[in-house]
Design a protein around this nucleic acid. Structure first.
Lengths: 168, 168
DNA sequence: ATGAATGCAAAGGTTTTGCACCCCC
DNA sequence: GGGGGTGCAAAACCTTTGCATTCAT
């Protein structure tokens, strides 16, 4: 187990602490390289906007939402339209530069009737059925981890996307 | 471990299979009671709309999104406005009738730069910091569970909301 | 030149808000 | 009568789409 990183301080904390400017420049060129590679492989066209957007992404400490990115991009490059930003995301994901993180697939909250009894979910990718489960060994492993790291767990969401047997 | 339930068939499957009508009526009165209790405790006012909305919620097989609920409510009770439906949700949550399920707290997707290496997240409820972790024993327990249930896991999201030590 | 990429504006969908009216206590 | 609750409409957001134009190769 290891903690890989942490982020999302006050939005402006990391705006440009010249300290790690070099490091960020290096990161930028690494991801820019990945982008170029993907563009070459897929016979797409190089574009300046996508480089600019990528640069702003690197500027985040890993995690960001699309509205956050849109705002940041348009502050730096007012000429870039929102459509371009949104259209660049699936490209970056395909290029292995970005991964979706944290949230549900579709961005809509799903609610359920319930007493507060804890359980987690398995969502079948074939038929959309939602199964619920409660697994003590996972709960225990999680509690052990969290207390080792000095946290006090309050609640969690654990969703496993899977293919089920009766898959069509 | 046990599977508690499964749902979300084709949207109309469960419209009213007279079979379990009695059971549903019982469920309705149970939740209506919880609502009445909460309203009494909080010195709020009783209202018909909220009962009607709750009835439609009971009619779902546990899981639903807000747009799904809105649609269902307005089909049955065209006079109920969307504002009322949306405003009823936090009330039902406070009353212990509903719990948010599956999705992230705020409904916005969060993206991150990354190579695709798998990790999960701990979100500090005090300071908003996002920590990443990868815990093999949780992964193993999860894989064991999922294959026992006859699924093939494709990916998962596991987010733990917790209070961290440097909490203010 | 050809197809990809873009900006703009408009549309779509979800959720929130302002406000006058209504209802419960 | 007073404050909570409601419906309606408008606004606020976030995201997608259509289209004419620009850009890369």
């Amino acid at each position: 187990m290891k903690v890989l990183s942490c982020g999302r301080q006050a939005p402006d904390t990391q705006t440009s602490g010249a300290a790690n400017a070099a490091q960020r420049k290096k990161a930028t060129s690494h991801w820019a390289g990945k982008l170029a590679e993907h563009i070459r492989e897929q016979d797409l066209n190089h574009s300046r906007s996508r480089e600019d957007i990528l640069q702003q992404i690197v500027d985040f400490d890993r995690h960001f939402t699309l509205p956050e990115l849109l705002k940041k991009v348009q502050e730096k490059f007012p000429s870039i339209g929102s459509a371009t930003v949104y259209r660049s995301i699936p490209l970056f994901v395909a290029a292995g530069i970005l991964q979706e993180s944290l949230a549900d697939q579709d961005k809509l909250s799903v609610y359920e009737l319930g007493e507060g009894a804890h359980h987690d979910h398995i969502v079948c990718l074939k038929c959309g059925t939602i199964f619920e489960f409660h697994d003590e060994s996972i709960e225990v492993a999680q509690e052990k981890l969290i207390s080792k790291l000095g946290f006090k767990a309050v609640r969690h969401h654990h969703v496993i996307y899977a293919d089920c047997l009766k898959a069509r």
